[in-house]
Design a protein around this nucleic acid. Structure first.
Length: 491
RNA sequence: GGCGGCGUAGCCAAGUGGCUAAGGCAGAGGUCUGCAAAACCUUCAUUCAUCGGUUCAAAUCCGAUCGCCGCCUCCA
């Protein structure tokens, strides 16, 4: 049973789908007027994991994540760059797709564009006017907030409070300062579509209603987005959607916490942001993923070098274990003996823990997608497997084979869902980390130095051996003498 | 001002009524190693911002206080 925290009720609830065995989920994507930052990445990673987890638990999933490709900021950007709004959008959609691919975020089932749903938006607006929930003025159309009695139910505000503290610009043409635009008359030179109210473009909120209706139905299971979208965006979506359809729009509202810099929200307007690609140039994508998943998706997370380095250290430890398992299993054949019998004499409790790892993982994830707890459970298992590997010499070989192959299977099982720990150890220690560091020697030169040092070690010329170690260290290369020979890793 | 949330070790971070407060990083000591590194072992919060209350029992529920953050305007 999956439990999830619903912003609407403020509680963790059991997930009950509209249609048994099916998940219909919508996540607000980005407005494509600039490169995306690590805050955008957090939402994308979190909701990708959530929809992926539902698939793991057997649900038939339709996951929709939109692009807002018409908006004031896009228009302004187009003016600045002397290109069309459509060109701006297209450019940053491509950039976003590239960033997501590098982060290991899968493509949603449907990635609708606002501009491809103008007809559907007009239809919803027309229906709202018919029902008395909206009105047209000078080519604009506004939603009549006072006509929707549940307005404020998501963000827990009431109309009187908002009017008291209103900082909304006063527009005399609106019946109420809180009324919001469904359709905006276009100014000359701006993107425009024909409508019953004259040429114009959609307001921000209406696209999600129209695209949600079209792709997922008038009532769907999950709608997700950043905490900052609760008000006004999602509140307005609810008003439009429920006023037009007469039904509940969404059953569960999920909101991710922010990425902070020095305890402050990262945002474009504060200027304290790092783009995804800046970060990926400095840190391997897997480090960034582990960092993001190490904190529960609803909590704030502080972006800092120290935290990224913690994540890197964690990955080193995981891949060291994976290397140990791999080295042991290499070239060995499965035994025909029943696991239970052999394992009994080797380490029964470890075996059971390993076999139960996927279940323990699911227990953590079932509880509001607690990836932080899930990762803690994995590291608990890592320590125990490492301990086992350290004592391998004293173990029954058949039993050890059974335990370590089971470990490999269990770790792979949970890794596939998390989208981390999936690489081969050589790849992690080699190319993945090579990219982050300055190694000033070629592979051949490094091998040559290692050979030189090992010759010195054979004649027990420790001074020379240490000298070579220092030379390589200065070049950003660290040596490790392993039972199988000397290996090197970027410092 | 209104609404929402947070405060757990040097740092990151789980835990929302009941066994010894997960896990990681950093630190200390040890095993191993020519030296290292890794790995492993031991150690590292009698206590969960503070004060008061409810309860047989609270980090967890209630109230107050202090501090921090977010939303109320575009924002993941």
């Amino acid at each position: 049973m999956i439990k999830l925290y619903n912003t609407m009720t403020g509680k963790k609830e059991e997930f009950v789908p509209v249609t048994p065995g099916t998940l219909n989920m919508y996540a607000c994507g980005v407005t494509v007027y600039d490169l995306s930052h690590i805050g955008h990445a957090r939402g994308a990673v979190a909701f990708d994991l959530i929809q992926r987890y539902f698939r793991r638990r057997g649900y038939q999933v339709t996951y929709v994540r939109n692009f807002t490709d018409v908006d004031d900021k896009i228009i302004n950007r187009a003016k600045e760059e002397g290109i069309t709004a459509a060109e701006v959008a297209s450019k940053y959609i491509d950039a976003y797709q590239e960033d997501m691919k590098r982060l290991g975020v899968g493509r949603p089932d449907i990635e609708p564009l606002a501009t491809e749903h103008i007809r559907e938006m007009i239809e919803v607006i027309r229906r709202l006017i018919e029902k008395g929930h909206a009105y047209a003025v000078d080519g604009d159309v506004y939603f009549r907030v006072a006509s929707f009695k549940d307005y404020g139910k998501l963000s827990k505000r009431n109309l009187d409070d908002m009017k008291a503290g209103a900082r909304v610009e006063v527009d005399e043409r609106k019946e109420d300062p809180l009324d919001f635009a469904l359709w905006k008359a276009s100014k000359p030179g701006e993107p425009a579509w024909d409508s019953p109210w004259g040429p114009g473009r959609p307001g921000w909120h209406i696209e999600c209603t129209a695209m949600g209706f079209k792709h997922l139905g008038e009532t769907f299971d999950i709608h997700a987005g950043g905490k900052d979208l609760i008000f006004p965006h999602h509140e307005n979506e609810i008003a439009q959607s429920e006023a037009s359809s007469g039904r509940r729009f969404v059953n569960y509202w999920l909101h991710n916490g922010f990425v902070n810099i020095n305890q402050e929200k990262m945002s474009k307007s504060l200027g304290n942001f790092f783009t995804i690609r800046d970060i990926l140039d400095k840190y391997d994508a897997e480090i960034v993923r582990l960092f993001l998943l190490s904190t529960h998706y609803r909590s704030p997370i502080d972006f800092s070098d120290a935290n990224l380095k913690d994540a890197r250290a964690g990955l080193d430890r995981f891949y060291t274990m994976k290397e140990g398992i791999k080295n042991f299993l290499a070239g060995k054949k499965p035994s025909a003996v029943k696991p239970e019998e052999v394992v009994e004499s080797v380490d029964k409790s470890l075996y059971e823990k390993i076999v139960n790892l996927p279940k323990a993982f699911e227990d953590a994830m079932d509880d509001d997608f607690n990836s932080a707890l899930a990762i803690g459970i994995i590291y608990d298992a890592v320590r125990e497997v490492n301990k086992f590997i350290a004592d391998l010499g004293q173990k029954n070989e058949q039993g050890a084979y059974i335990i370590l192959s089971a470990a490999q299977e269990s770790f792979d099982n949970v890794s596939r869902t998390l989208g981390i720990f999936l690489r081969e150890p050589e790849e992690w220690f080699g190319e993945a980390r090579l990219g982050e560091h300055k190694v000033t020697l070629s592979m051949e030169q490094i091998e040559e130095y290692i050979h030189l040092r090992n010759q010195a070690r054979e004649r027990k010329d420790w001074a020379e051996a240490d000298r070579v170690r220092r030379v390589l260290d200065d070049a950003g290369v660290t040596l490790f003498d392993r039972p199988g020979g000397t290996v090197w890793k970027p410092k």
